[in-house]
Design a protein around this nucleic acid. Sequence first.
DNA 1: TTGCATCTCCTTACGCCATAAACTAACCTG
DNA 2: CAGGTTAGTTTATGGCGTAAGGAGATGCAA
Lengths: 262, 262
Amino acid sequence: MVVFAGQGDPRRSMSLLWRSAEAGSRPGPKPGLSVDAIVDAAIAVADEQGMSALSMRAVGERLGRTAMALYTYVPNKAELLDLMYDKVLGQLPTEYPSDQGWRAALTAWVGDVRAFYLWHPWVLQVSQARPVLGPNEFTMLETLLRILRQTGLERSVLRGVVGVVTQFVRGAAEVIADARRAARETGVSDEEWWYARSPLVEEFSAPFERQFPLVAWLGELDPPAADDDCTPYLERHAEWNFTVGLEVLLDGIEAAVARSVG
Amino acid sequence: MVVFAGQGDPRRSMSLLWRSAEAGSRPGPKPGLSVDAIVDAAIAVADEQGMSALSMRAVGERLGRTAMALYTYVPNKAELLDLMYDKVLGQLPTEYPSDQGWRAALTAWVGDVRAFYLWHPWVLQVSQARPVLGPNEFTMLETLLRILRQTGLERSVLRGVVGVVTQFVRGAAEVIADARRAARETGVSDEEWWYARSPLVEEFSAPFERQFPLVAWLGELDPPAADDDCTPYLERHAEWNFTVGLEVLLDGIEAAVARSVG
DNA sequence: TTGCATCTCCTTACGCCATAAACTAACCTG
DNA sequence: CAGGTTAGTTTATGGCGTAAGGAGATGCAA
């Protein structure tokens, strides 16, 4: 489902992303649609039915048009994806308190971004191969940098840190988003799925504890504890991994800061 | 392009993954193919032409058959993907020296896994939503755990660490793999792509340095230094991010170890 | 006012994709 | 040799993105 934009006219892409509308009075029928309306409709489809349901036909239908009508406003599906991506990024918060240190602010940012990804899981499926170069993508990076600047790390190290942090949030959100998507698209919950397979692993792998002692010890094969908590199995794991992982990451950054000062 | 397996018979999936062949003499024509032959052909197609070229038709053609012939051996494309995934994971090394500490071993493991992902980039496109539960997936985890056991971290923390580390390698490889895929599928190199867009960003965003001072400072907009080095622009950045990120991660784990000891 | 260029939006069509259904032909067992 | 089972084919269905061409609306110049 991953598609690449940017094979078209770069100037056209950019002017769409930054919405430099010229308009003026022109011949021909008045446009019944607009880029914004199309992008909004596309976002709505993706939010409601997931990326796999996002087709030109579906977007057109939501606007009471055919698929082909969209091509008057948007060069192709890949560009539409880029527009959706940048527009929805605009929902991210941009202000974080700077008086409690970078650690608190970064924790808040990571939490917000992860929540955002889980709110619009399809965003995770937009290729990160090449930056979209839209205004909101830059804004997101600027926000992160305002927080990380407080570490006082030098530029080249900061670049690396930006990389790990963004990768971490994406990864943390992806685990959950993928699990939810799987549950929705297959109609099988994590629990059902697991209970159907867990005994089979034991059966086919002969003595599992002998073949994979450490995996067995880690308890990935344990059935989910039947808590009052109704959060799905995999998500409970993911939640914990997120907490631990974030701490590891923050400690690592702190170490880098300590090294750069000392 | 992400597809989910596991909507079929779990027992069938498992017996395919663990290759519990019954065979015996049966009526009907001799099978001209085998699950292994199909999986190998599919891996070859994915390696050579990428995941987007992996269709049942393509695999069948490579074996001199039609697409439909494969369905005798494999229930559907999603299951085939799982089989490809687990089989190719078998190429990963499993032994790492334990006499130089976990840090050295983990560094080597992360490097190997990243190299592996870049060798078979399509692996990154197999959904991680639910574990495949094949033998080689367990082996990979077991290998990582043999290394991480040396940290002496308690089980629950270790689970978190496993999560961050695997997410980190995936992320680090994805950046590069996506970039290469984009270059291949669009026929536009990173450099060409960048030179076409860089000036346009300045043009459309009015005073870029005023709007995004920190982004400008970070120099993401700098044109790539024209080194003797012929590694593409984005990959050079990625390489650096990988090094810095890994160090941050290792330091973070070390902090966790120190905390658990003290 | 007319004619035309231009624009929106539609219909149609092409070539992909996964896979369901029905068929042919090979083969083992009774 | 008959019957049932299996491997592999052909054909068809309903999806996808989007190229091509046409119909009707609109603003402007003559």
